[in-house]
């Protein structure tokens, strides 16, 4: 059987715990309490790649299988050939990015001249955005330019973003934007 580093750690861990419980002196009680379960023991384990810089470090995400199903721990993936378990201060804090009380959790809308956000449904938001896109596009669509050349575009809608999307999302996003006739398509690589 070929063991990867993480299997090895699991096995040696079990052994270490076994030794710890046997042959100890007066402080057995405390050791047992420490040698017991890791908080991540019953968690679902998934791998990810850090969302910050482009080194592409691997991390392991421990998601609770009980209760709220939220993230309990995110740490460097020792089997990832680039970072081999290491993470910087940002990578080490991804759990707090995910489980953050400041996150947006509902679509919101700000009406013209309003001074506040209002929570709206996804349905309402997406329908209204689709309406705005269609209206602006149809009103501004240029089939030909000043020279009479075919251009089939709108310059009244612009899009910026995003290096924060996955590859597959980038691809479908650019295809949607280009099908609408946008030429103002830019993102983080330009700035």
């Amino acid at each position: 059987m070929k063991l990867d580093r993480r299997d090895f750690i699991k096995i040696s861990g079990a052994t270490a715990a076994g030794i710890a419980v046997s042959g100890l002196g007066f402080d057995l009680k405390q050791v047992k309490s420490h040698a017991g379960m890791l908080k991540t023991r019953y968690a679902k384990e998934s791998t990810t790649i850090c969302c910050y810089c482009a080194v592409g470090c691997g991390a392991i995400v421990h998601t609770s299988k009980r209760g709220d199903g939220r993230v309990m721990n995110i740490e460097g993936d020792p089997d990832h050939v680039i970072n081999q378990g290491s993470l910087c201060s940002k990578g080490s804090s991804i759990k707090q990015l995910v489980e953050n009380e400041n996150r947006l959790t509902e679509p919101m809308y700000r009406a013209p001249y309003s001074d506040k956000w209002q929570t709206v449904s996804w349905d309402w938001a997406l329908n209204n955005i689709a309406d705005r896109v269609k209206k602006t596009r149809d009103e501004s669509f240029e089939k030909t330019n000043a020279k009479g050349q075919t251009v089939n575009r709108t310059t009244k809608i612009a899009s910026v973003g995003s290096a924060a999307l996955d590859n597959e999302e980038c691809w479908i996003y650019q295809s949607l934007m280009r099908s609408l006739g946008l030429v103002y398509i830019e993102h983080q690589a330009r700035i």
Partner: peptide, 9 residues
């Protein structure tokens, strides 16, 4: 420009 997407940026 009338309409604008700032998507993940």
């Amino acid at each position: 420009v009338k309409g604008f997407f700032a998507w993940g940026q």
